[in-house]
């Protein structure tokens, strides 16, 4: 039961219910669709990149609580970061979810992203938590690419 409580933390449930930056962005410079066929999650990530800096992030779509909350927290975490910082944060986030030996993330730096540490105990849910990130990376790499977690 404790594992479950770690998974469905208040922060995650809140973001699921009231996701941040949950809208279409008309003037996006980058956009990508993500799809997890296993559970039917579908989302679109929109980015506005100015030079090297991500000035705005938003998303739209439907999915489970983990994928929706993760997308929501991600948008708040990425706003204002440079593209390089975003990539680095993604790798750290992924490590936290998948590597036993990953260092416990620094709460100051990681903020609400740390709430997803509990996902590590649920390997089938890792894809849910990383869908929005993969989609964002794809948007930065190549516009309008559809990402599938399969």
């Amino acid at each position: 039961m404790d594992e479950l409580r770690d998974l469905y933390q208040e922060i995650i449930l809140d973001h699921n219910k009231n996701p941040k930056n949950f809208h279409v962005m008309e003037d996006a410079t980058h956009k990508s669709d993500g799809h997890n066929p296993l559970c039917g999650d579908r989302l679109t990530v929109y980015l506005h990149v100015d030079g090297d800096r991500i000035t705005d992030v938003s998303f739209q779509g439907s999915g489970c609580a983990i994928s929706k909350a993760s997308a929501s927290v991600m948008t708040t975490a990425l706003k204002g970061k440079t593209v390089a910082e975003a990539r680095e944060l993604f790798h750290k986030f992924q490590d936290m979810l998948t590597r036993e030996d990953a260092a416990i993330p620094d709460l100051d730096e990681f903020g609400q992203l740390a709430a997803f540490a509990g996902v590590r105990e649920f390997p089938v849910r890792v894809k849910c938590a990383t869908l929005s990130w993969h989609t964002t990376m794809a948007a930065l790499d190549d516009e309008n690419k559809i990402v599938s977690t399969e």
């Binding site: 594992e3 479950l4 998974l7 559970c39 039917g40 609580a65 849910r125």
Partner: peptide
Amino acid sequence: HPHDVGTILDHEGVAIRTGH
């Protein structure tokens, strides 16, 4: 969402399928 239903039910020992 069905995926969350499946995870929580699993912890109750209940195995159902979620998805399409």
